[in-house]
Write a protein that binds this DNA or RNA. Structure first.
Lengths: 200, 200
DNA sequence: ACGGTCTTGTATCGATCGTTCCAAGATGCG
DNA sequence: CGCATCTTGGAACGATCGATACAAGACCGT
């Protein structure tokens, strides 16, 4: 019945993260979290602390998973700012479109929508978003974008990322999501009709 | 103490709508709704029914306020599809940026994020979004967009609208929001660098 | 003035929320 | 094996949730 831990902490955290993504913060009740993780109430509190702490740890775990993905997508030399946008959004889109990855999509995006989260959690989410924004801006600058263009494109790319997450939770199809991402990524192209294209 | 109604039903509905926008569905407790509307519990339930019904009526009231605004913005002849996008987003942006309009922004957008809403409410929200999408598509077709382009632009414009709402609740400044909207609206321009520009 | 109708505020319900506590039991060490 | 340590599941806590019941009181028609 007991003795030593009968579960993997990291796997439990991954499942908790999924529950938070699926239900949001306030609707992710302890019952849902215990059901989703497979842990009992005692184990949950004993291992992760209260709900707010569990959310923050889920957020950290999420960052550890996705931050490198975004970093890698943004690392390579890109021929244009729009290529940066495309690479960034592709990471999110792959996760949303792939049904075998239940914890895809942006937890941060959902989290920012829930006012029940305490101040510490809100600050953590905001810091994460700001970090992504800075990362994007730097990559855009490296891709040849001007200062102002980089700042604008970074903001708009994040907004698109949020849109993808929201749309995916509102019942829009994967094709619709791909349309949004493709439209956002379709930047200044070398084709005839090319030109500066801002995306959101 | 009692006798005849001591409040304006429509004004109470407007305030309830604002509470739902501010707190979302699940976090908009009855206490917050009574505080926000100024009504007592008895008056709330006697006039509007239960919470889910009140939300649906708030949604209807919201539609009655904003649907004409979007319709008007989309009605005029537009020189280009991007002008349609710009006109549409301007409606939302004006509401977000204006601090004197507390019930601005898209209630629908927030609502779709909250899983606690019952099936009837979800369906109503979804129908409203689909209606906006169709309205946008039609206006884009009238502005000279092709079938596919109109469908894509309509979807992306809605996504941008959602982004604006989300960003406005996450602490981004009005300038940031304007940047997103402007980028989305910056379509195929007659300038030298003009070309087809998709926005999200 | 009086009775019927409606509104209002409050008390209260059962359910569920997040959280704490604790006995029961399994493990590792000596 | 015996004991200390840790985990586990369930019971139970107070608070709050949405919702209901109801008495008290204000209005209107007659």
């Amino acid at each position: 019945m007991a003795g030593r831990k009968q579960f993997d902490v990291d796997e439990a955290l991954r499942r908790a993260m999924h529950v938070f993504w699926r239900w949001g913060y306030s609707e992710a009740s302890i019952d849902r979290l215990t059901e989703g993780t497979g842990l009992g109430r005692g184990s949950l509190y004993g291992t992760f602390g209260d709900k707010s702490t569990l959310f923050r740890k889920s957020l950290e775990r999420y960052a550890q998973t996705y931050h490198p993905l975004y970093e890698q997508a943004l690392s390579g030399p890109h021929p244009s700012p729009s290529a940066v946008v495309a690479a960034y959004l592709q990471v999110t889109l792959n996760r949303i479109a792939d049904p075998t990855v239940p914890d895809g999509c942006l937890l941060t995006v959902s989290a920012t929508q829930f006012p029940a989260l305490d101040a510490e959690g809100q600050a953590m989410v905001r810091a994460m978003i700001d970090g992504l924004r800075a990362m994007l801006r730097q990559a855009l600058l490296a891709a040849g974008a001007g200062e102002q263009e980089a700042a604008e494109l970074a903001l708009c790319t994040l907004a698109t990322n949020k849109s993808l997450a929201v749309l995916s939770r509102t019942g829009f199809s994967s094709e619709d999501l791909a349309t949004v991402a493709a439209a956002a990524a379709r930047g200044p192209s070398p084709q005839a009709q090319g030109g500066v294209c801002r995306s959101t």
